[in-house]
């Protein structure tokens, strides 16, 4: 008997969503719930792990297994889960404070290890749940409650950071883009190892309009530089020195997401330093590298299935023993 077709409703939990009206998280949640049926994975084999922050609530709203963890530790919790179970589809939902500040160490090591987890990084460039402090992606000079005279610390570029951490899949998309977001999720789900998806997400209360240059219909059309594997990147050229540039004279660049050398993807990530002008959107890098513990998981499962009293006795009695009768 064929399994009944899954629908969006199968992924909607009974919990009342409690984000602020107009929050970009609603759009992402709706897109994720609408996308998941196409994966064909039954909800019980899917786990959402989250940290702390507005994005952390995401786990409660998916009718899958879910674990709302502690601040920044989502990738570590998910790494442990992936080590125990290789039969699950594991997704981590995190924010810019959660992933890049308090959880920075866990993020880079999950990417380095290439743990088979998909990390959705909701970047709104602000701390929302704690009511509006500067985050590690807030722009220099940003005035917030904690930086009344303007932030004196420069921001991270999450895509550059992930590439520096040896990530095998790095993408960027936008909360309200109903076509592009599922396309990126599809590619992330198909990727064997760790995937980092940065989602520009508007916070209407504490940082409204941060991504208008990309989210607005008219301005967005001008500023989005779509990255599609095998296609020319609009407006991006390679100059005489071989460097990538936006506009000007030079050879058009054909996007190659599968390039082993991460410096090309890194160069793409440096085309914009903030989302207020032309910014690359899409999959920067998608390469294959051994997945953390995949072969080991099978080997250990077999060893464990075979472990019994006899093998335990043999282990305990290994080495020098003596018997008193």
């Amino acid at each position: 008997m064929a399994a009944p077709e899954l629908t969006k409703a199968d992924f909607q939990s009974d919990q009342e969503t409690r984000w602020c009206p107009g929050c970009g998280d609603y759009a992402v949640l709706a897109a994720v719930q609408a996308f998941f049926p196409e994966l064909g994975i039954p909800p019980e084999r899917i786990v959402f792990v989250s940290g702390i922050g507005c994005a952390g609530r995401f786990a409660y709203y998916m009718d899958t297994y879910g674990m709302h963890g502690i601040h920044g530790r989502g990738p570590a919790l998910a790494t442990g889960l992936a080590a125990a179970r290789d039969d699950l589809s594991i997704w981590v939902v995190t924010g810019d404070g959660d992933a890049l500040s308090i959880g920075g160490n866990h993020l880079i090591h999950a990417l380095r290890r290439n743990v088979p987890i998909k990390i959705l990084l909701f970047n709104n460039q602000i701390y929302g749940l704690t009511k509006g402090q500067a985050s590690p992606t807030s722009e220099l000079g940003k005035v917030t409650k904690s930086t009344p005279f303007g932030s004196i610390d420069g921001p991270f570029n999450p895509v550059s950071l992930a590439l520096g951490a040896e990530a095998t899949f790095v993408a960027r998309t936008i909360d309200t883009d109903k076509q592009h977001l599922p396309m990126v999720l599809r590619a992330a789900a198909a990727h064997e190892g760790a995937a980092l998806v940065e989602i520009y997400q508007n916070c209407p209360v504490f940082n409204d309009g941060a991504f208008d240059a990309l989210r607005d219909k008219k301005r967005g059309a001008e500023n989005r530089i779509y990255l599609e594997h095998g296609e020319p990147i609009r407006g991006v050229v390679r100059d005489a020195e071989g460097a990538l540039r936006i506009g000007g004279e030079g050879e058009p660049v054909i996007h190659d997401a599968h390039r082993e050398d991460p410096s090309y993807a890194f160069a793409l990530s440096r085309l914009s330093s903030s989302p207020d002008g032309p910014t690359p959107i899409g999959i920067f890098r998608d390469v294959r590298r051994p997945v953390s513990g995949r072969d080991l998981a099978r080997q250990l499962a077999a060893a464990r299935a075979a472990a019994d009293d006899a093998s335990l006795d043999a282990l305990m009695r290994a080495g020098d023993t003596w018997t008193i009768s």
């Binding site: 792990v49 080590a83 125990a84 090591h109």
Partner: peptide
Amino acid sequence: RTIQAEDEIAAASMALGAAFG
């Protein structure tokens, strides 16, 4: 299965994540 974690926090979190599984 042993995991040498990136830090003490992660080591504990990995154990707990595994327990959930």
